[in-house]
Design a protein around this nucleic acid. Structure first.
Lengths: 240, 240
DNA sequence: TGGGAAACGAGAGCAGTGCTCTCTGCTGTG
DNA sequence: CACAGCAGAGAGCACTGCTCTCGTTTCCCA
């Protein structure tokens, strides 16, 4: 295993151009959305020929993929930070949800990029999975902590968890044999998706305009949606 | 008020071309998605010059808008049909959700068109609102019936409904003065959004690939998500 | 029964896109 | 110091949405 190869001048130049490229692309994404993100425009912003960009990025979709990973990481970090401070799992979940919503409102096009319609011809490469998983980690962590503290009281229906979770997901959590996972744990894992869904759903619905003429105070409306779903999962959030 | 003007030959021809145009556009939408829907391609399918299409549709976005209305109406009809047959409101909601999911899986691009990332530069014209409201109508109807039958027992948190709903929405339901709406009704209206969100969210999350490597049996996973959220709203769905 | 206006369709053209290919310099290394 | 490899530029292809112009057809009304 050789140590890190010293960066020669050319490599440093390359890394620098690459980061300028990403910065320019991110700027255009935030201001105009992914559909309007054109490789040629980014090249113009950098003062280089469009063909030169292809030395750094194999295609427009690949550039978008890099931005997708950045966005997953950003939202994951926001969630982790919001989860770190709280004590009561239920109220902490509300804080996490609020933080993610705020992030989404601040950079709507980044949210769209990852949770909206997938980019045509795009197939999530493994790089994105690692980043995408961070938000799930926060949710599962909260639920496990709540279960450990004995404050998890789901009001949703009971169900047989067998065959609902993908084995890979359970393997990630440490259970190699899906049959060995206690039903209680498996049920929590399945229910965690309800939190994830309500979060992504509530933000999408608001951001994509489906609450237009329906809700008035969007922030408080959001809180109700999150808290109502969370009750089914077992987290009792109190509002107001 | 003059009666319907008799359709002259030219009008009939125009209507026919228009419907062929829509059919061709729908076909391309279903097979390749909205991003790849090109007006020129549709024109080629019809054997006409691309410029001629502009006699019928002012722009590509306007053509998409027509397809959006169609999609809203289709999903609304699916929901209404599914709601019509059931008796128990809770189980009926599960059936409605399942029916909408099935519709979305059958025509994913239509679902994306209305509930995914909005088309750039698109601002919902009033025509779409009427169609978009149909699904909301089904949800509110179910909740009102449940409340009337006394089987609505929300486990989600209590909250002050004031200022959360948009006055327009309450006006549509018959209350001209927002202050006159009973709190109980207003709370139901706010909570109805949780059902809407869980439905749209659960389908989006599945369709857009966020359950890849997470869920195994997607249909049963979906049921849990819907039922768990519904418990918070007050509909007790039993699974299995 | 004409004549004129409106509608229709075709074609060329503009500005933009993603992407490829070729050509020219510059860089780093044996 | 020479040579391989790399960065960048530019032209070009096929495609897009959209506009403008030009004949042709259709309809309505005098």
């Amino acid at each position: 295993m050789a140590g890190p190869i010293p960066l020669r001048a050319r490599d440093r130049a390359r890394a620098e151009v690459m980061s300028e490229l990403l910065a320019a692309a991110r700027a255009r994404l935030e201001s105009e959305g992914s559909a309007a993100l054109s490789l040629r425009a980014v090249a113009r912003d950098l003062g280089m020929a469009s063909s030169a960009v292809y030395r750094y990025v194999p295609s427009r979709d690949a550039l978008l993929t890099l931005l997708i990973i950045e966005a997953y990481d950003a939202v994951g970090e926001v969630a982790e930070k919001a989860a770190g401070s709280g004590s009561d799992p239920a109220q902490t979940w509300l804080e996490v949800a609020r933080a993610v919503r705020r992030w989404a409102l601040d950079q709507p096009y980044s949210f769209e990029l990852i949770y909206g319609t997938p980019v045509r011809g795009y197939r999530a490469p493994d790089d994105t999975v690692r980043a995408a998983v961070r938000l799930w980690g926060v949710i599962i962590g909260l639920l496990m902590r709540a279960a450990g503290e004995g404050v998890l009281a789901p009001t949703g229906p009971d169900f047989d968890p067998a065959g609902r979770m993908a084995p890979e997901a359970l393997a990630t959590a440490g259970w190699t044999d899906p049959d060995e996972v206690p039903d209680e744990i498996a049920r929590i894992a399945v229910r965690s998706a309800t939190l994830f869904t309500s979060l992504v759903g509530a933000i999408s619905v608001e951001l994509f305009g489906h609450l237009h003429h329906v809700a008035q105070d969007y922030a408080r409306f959001f809180d109700v949606t999150i808290a109502t779903s969370a009750a089914g999962v077992g987290l009792r959030i109190s509002l107001d």
